[in-house]
């Protein structure tokens, strides 16, 4: 029942297929690749993947006591909607724990640098591993790759020690110098996210950057371009789709992270992200989970916007640019 509402009916796709028959190379290829069975299978997968989230969405609009006594599908026979859960989550502010908006800002201010910093560093490093020949390059790359498996949990305490020793004096000095910057800052969270993202980012970007045809880079070098120029003028534009896709994933991971925030953010409204606040809203014994249903959707909005915003990059194809060059 829900599938009708949220996915296009099979007919539409079939109609599209028959309409596309004929002109254009891409159109012809498409016709041959798409069979009714494939379309049907795609729709089945899409429905299966959507139902759980859809159920949660409906639940988040249902009165708290109904959520735990009847299934969400009973909504269709007995529609009762309330915005109380969202009201709870969005506007239950007070002096010590303000409304959600402030945490939203924090989440953004953590996630944006937490995405940009590792991406810049990783794309530089990936370029070095892929296109700068030096002794031990292979070994070093394997080491970086293997670092992916160092469990986050095991790195928390040593990193916190380092931050307390090195970063805290600096942060306090900054606060003394510019009083309206709190001494509880985002810096440790950014650095932590950057560090934890680097191995995977270098590994993924290396894979794409190393597939850029060697002739393109050789040609640039013959023309006398330095590594910096090659990186900015050739590698970066060509790797943009890969960088954009990784940016989406990294943004999601940072946005949804709770563990790193628990350790490295202060937990106060100064720096705590949305996830930390939502975990608190759930209550110390996890009893208020009707709030969690609404909270989950509040925090879902931004990642989806990012996905839509960056999608055009990888729809173009990861290697579309290099194929032309």
């Amino acid at each position: 029942m829900s599938s009708v509402a949220i996915t296009p009916q099979p007919k539409t796709s079939e109609a599209a297929v028959s309409a596309a028959a004929g002109v254009g190379r891409a159109e012809r290829v498409k016709r041959r690749l798409t069979s009714p069975w494939a379309t049907a299978a795609a729709i089945v997968i899409a429905v299966l993947w959507t139902i759980p989230t859809f159920g949660l969405l409906l639940s988040s609009f249902r009165p708290a006591e109904q959520i735990s006594t009847s299934g969400w599908w009973t909504f269709f026979s007995d529609p009762q909607l309330t915005l109380a859960n969202y009201g709870d989550v969005l506007f239950s502010g007070s002096a010590s724990s303000p409304q959600l908006g402030e945490y939203f800002v924090n989440s953004l201010l953590i996630a944006i640098p937490g995405t940009i910093l590792p991406l810049v560093l990783a794309s530089l490093a990936a370029y070095a591993f892929a296109w700068v020949k030096f002794k031990g390059s292979g070994t070093l790359f394997v080491v970086v790759f293997a670092l992916q498996i160092v469990p986050l949990q095991m790195a928390l305490i040593p990193l916190l020690q380092l931050f307390v020793t090195f970063l805290q004096p600096f942060q306090n000095a900054l606060h003394d110098a510019v009083p309206f910057i709190s001494e509880r800052q985002f810096l440790p969270v950014w650095i932590a996210h950057t560090i934890f993202a680097l191995p995977l980012a270098i590994f993924l970007l290396h894979n794409f950057i190393s597939e850029i045809p060697g002739e393109v880079i050789e040609a640039a070098r013959v023309d006398g371009a330095g590594h910096g120029q090659i990186f900015f003028r050739i590698v970066l534009p060509l790797a943009m789709p890969a960088i954009a896709s990784f940016a989406i994933f990294q943004f999601l991971w940072v946005w949804n992270d709770l563990l790193v925030a628990l350790v490295f953010s202060s937990g106060t409204p100064d720096t705590a992200p949305l996830t930390q606040r939502l975990a608190e809203l759930a209550g110390s014994r996890g009893e208020n989970w009707e709030r969690l249903t609404a909270g989950a959707f509040v925090s879902l909005v931004v990642p989806l916007l990012v996905f839509f915003g960056l999608q055009r990059f990888f729809v173009r194809g990861l290697l579309a640019g290099s194929a032309k060059g």
């Binding site: 993947w49 759980p52 989230t53 949804n256 996905f307």
Partner: peptide, 13 residues
């Protein structure tokens, strides 16, 4: 977007 959506939900969600 439909299949991507679970990625955008936190593990706790």
């Amino acid at each position: 977007m439909l299949v991507f959506m679970p990625m955008a939900i936190s593990f706790v969600g």
